[in-house]
Write a protein that binds this DNA or RNA. Sequence first.
DNA 1: TTAAATCATATTAAGTCAATAGGAAATACC
DNA 2: GGTATTTCCTATTGACTTAATATGATTTAA
Lengths: 145, 145
Amino acid sequence: MKISTKGRYAVRVMLDLAAHNTGEYITVKTIAERQDISEKYLEQIISVLNKGGFVRSVRGAQGGYRIAKEPSDYTVGSILRLTEGSLAPVACLDSAENECERCDTCETLDVWRQLADAINRVVDGVTLQDLLDRQNSRLGDSYII
Amino acid sequence: MKISTKGRYAVRVMLDLAAHNTGEYITVKTIAERQDISEKYLEQIISVLNKGGFVRSVRGAQGGYRIAKEPSDYTVGSILRLTEGSLAPVACLDSAENECERCDTCETLDVWRQLADAINRVVDGVTLQDLLDRQNSRLGDSYII
DNA sequence: TTAAATCATATTAAGTCAATAGGAAATACC
DNA sequence: GGTATTTCCTATTGACTTAATATGATTTAA
């Protein structure tokens, strides 16, 4: 029941780009250094974000990435689903093909459905903007002290 | 973010034993047939349940397993935690040793904490007795029809 | 004594994770 | 036009996990 590094890194990358959302393009190298993530691994992850239209890229020298839309347009759930795949705790709930022929009489399916709902409610209830706001208010606190 | 077969099977085994809670001992073979799970694999899983004190066993001929306490004493969460280990969505939350030195400044930790809470709330809010009750009320429905 | 059963441990095949590696293609800058 | 920079693409790897299967020792009722 763990979220893999891929999904977690993806959230951090998006949050990094959201925090540096000036319209300028940022290189993988810069993000990798800031976030302390392997540059080559990050390349793969950001490639998924790019293909999903979550970021925009410019190739070549002086190129890089920037967030495609506003931070408030991205929920943590949308990022995780793009990079991790389904967040459903059991395969039966992945609508695509639920091969389990026990589904009709499955006594536990209801629990998994509740669990999926609870998970979705949390991750879809938090946007990158929310995370930025929390971050800023925490920084604000430390200034007061 | 999937619950493994180990955990899911464990819940089914416990539910099976809860549904046949007559005080008699039931063999792995019987459960395996009823639940359509590999007998040998089930042996391993039930061994964990046994060591955790969730079931009681009698060795030798005419031996088997039975649920140790009342079905209402077992939440789905307790069974999953025993067989799957921690249900925390990120390792940082596994109190034992949170190696991540970013924890203090981690902007995403809060989301994972919320997620863990939501997950725990669901799985700890459902007992085997609840599942039995739902099962019976569903059977009841079909009798009416 | 025998058959039935739990208990214990080792092995395996397939898959996933988290990278690393090597190079092709595009582009700003001199 | 050449060069350095940077994205883009795909393959490979080593470690680990998953979901079993296999083998046999131990216990016990009949």
